[in-house]
Design a binder for these strands. Sequence first.
DNA 1: TCCTGTGATGTTTACGTAAACATCACCCCC
DNA 2: GGGGGTGATGTTTACGTAAACATCACAGGA
Lengths: 363, 363
Amino acid sequence: MNGGGRQQPGTTPGGAQRGGSGVPGGRRKQRVSMADVATLAGVSSQTVSRVSNGHPGVVDSTREHVLAAMRELGYRPNSAARALRYGQFNTIGVILFSLASTGNSRTVEAIATHAAAEGYAITLIPVDVPTQDNVLGAFTRMGELAVDAVIVIIEIHLLDAGTVTLPPGVHVVIVVDSDAGDRYSVVDTDQADGARRAVHHLLDLGHRTVWHVTGPRTSYAGQRRTQAWRTALEEAGRPVPAPLHGDWSAESGYAAGLVLADEPGCTAVFVSNDQMALGLLRALHERGRVVPDEISVVGFDDIPEAAFFIPPLTTVHQDFAEVGRRCVQRVLVQIRENQTSPPGTDLVPTRLVVRNSTAAPGR
Amino acid sequence: MNGGGRQQPGTTPGGAQRGGSGVPGGRRKQRVSMADVATLAGVSSQTVSRVSNGHPGVVDSTREHVLAAMRELGYRPNSAARALRYGQFNTIGVILFSLASTGNSRTVEAIATHAAAEGYAITLIPVDVPTQDNVLGAFTRMGELAVDAVIVIIEIHLLDAGTVTLPPGVHVVIVVDSDAGDRYSVVDTDQADGARRAVHHLLDLGHRTVWHVTGPRTSYAGQRRTQAWRTALEEAGRPVPAPLHGDWSAESGYAAGLVLADEPGCTAVFVSNDQMALGLLRALHERGRVVPDEISVVGFDDIPEAAFFIPPLTTVHQDFAEVGRRCVQRVLVQIRENQTSPPGTDLVPTRLVVRNSTAAPGR
DNA sequence: TCCTGTGATGTTTACGTAAACATCACCCCC
DNA sequence: GGGGGTGATGTTTACGTAAACATCACAGGA
């Protein structure tokens, strides 16, 4: 029993003051504990606990008293104590490289939304520069952090290097955009599927072959798209032009566009994301090449703006929300089924959204 | 002392197994506590604590033993217990409506980065639909959550209604995009400043007046931009055309563009964000209106893609990173200076980025 | 030689919660 | 009318950590 020296509860009317100006001196204890509520309500703290957690076996009148006391004192449970007691935090950590890309932020948003629906919060661990050290640092930090599981959204080549191992205590891990599927549980957009759709769409329109602007070398997703583009062409028996290298930015797409504008045989381009496609469209426009009459362009991602490019962009739609949903689902299954982390890759299909940037070649 | 039944430490070499497959049965206790380390190292748990926190007064040889034991067992401190002990979590909660907008995700990223640099993690609480109930729910949830402070990034009209009060225990609050500056500590981009720059740029070019596409009615930022646009025109003694209403989406900008394309006197438009400007550009292009020769367009935000619109967009640059930085800074000051929450608004200036979508009118 | 101070380490306790167990009153039924 | 539930509530304890206090050994000075 810790009887003494609270901050005289009960004398403060109503609670609910402004941000903190109402509690000038007493900063010692967190604020209001079950014991305080119990004292005011004239019951034991265990009864307060029962009310707080909605357990049965509390008589209505008692419950009312307790609830009234809670309201009066502004009681809110201490999640640290809860976490300590239960051994879990109801929190999922998300390690990610950047929120700047549409895909990442949409995925994170979906993760946060679905996690919230399941009573889990999301803790964000940004890794500014994806060096080995930083990633490792993030994992370490995460290990010390109040999380029950970790979702990693990152260009994961670094992980594959093998020197980075997840802390042994962090039982559950899901990785997006990686080939670590044999080691971890992976959820990803089916990059190859999307690229294939793009290429086939262009070939079906009658183009002889399809040029390509890649993502950055370090991106596994980018690699997969490029690989699938190559394979699709080869399987169709078409020549495979040398790809142009981009870095996801509109600027790199613009640079690629300047090159392709002067490429005589080029009638169709598959660009590895929509931002680069935007830059490429502008380059072609500046060079007087008409899309889609002279050159067809397909992007990847289907960002909301793609429908308003000039011309509206045909692109591969990624279902980021679904990726996020499955991440959370997998992670929760693993948490609940007691830390089994079955490796394996879960691929979310794509779909092609045909707009006005593609047409039959020649005329 | 809880001597019994660990998972026979010491037999596992080196630690660092795969995600959890190495720990099949033992789920009862979190994993390894100080007591375990202490037992293995043959010291008291307090000594382990001292080593763990880098306190002085531990002889080197002892420290070595403890560190070795930590490594062997893969010890990582339990943050719940730590938080309980210290009364704080080293975590900042972020309540937000959506990550979909560039601004929000960039701000959140900056917040996460700066917070991480200060040893704080970020917990995300998404509010899918910003109704009173949901926002209130988020606050409540946040109150129960393991956070020391809250940053709110949201269209805050709802808060202003007054019925939503922050939980009394959450001592520190920072709000972005709101007029709650008299009640809370607010950091925001100087919306009015940006809008003024846009309007003056166009007037300086010689346009008689400036048309306007607004953001959604519910957005305080949007309102401020619209208000400043109106004021700037009035102060310059120019006629104020009826604004067209948008909702931030490219689609709404497109719709506005279709209207303005047929508006005879319209030579200059200030669009409240870049996405809508994109849609507007496409509408004008479709209607054969040449930008900037016939109509000049200024956007707001300076998203990375804006430089690659057709034509490259003149727009107002927002420094989201700076907003995030100041949020964290303010919040930390408040946490450290012991829960004083001085109201007041901190405005981050904008700058105009002139590209090719604006020119003198007439010719 | 003994006393005192100092530095290393151990012991106790509290943080807030909730499971497990204990108690107590009351009611029903034989 | 007493025995055996049954349901409401109280008491004890543990979760992992770290501050506060206690102890202990040893060194240096009177």
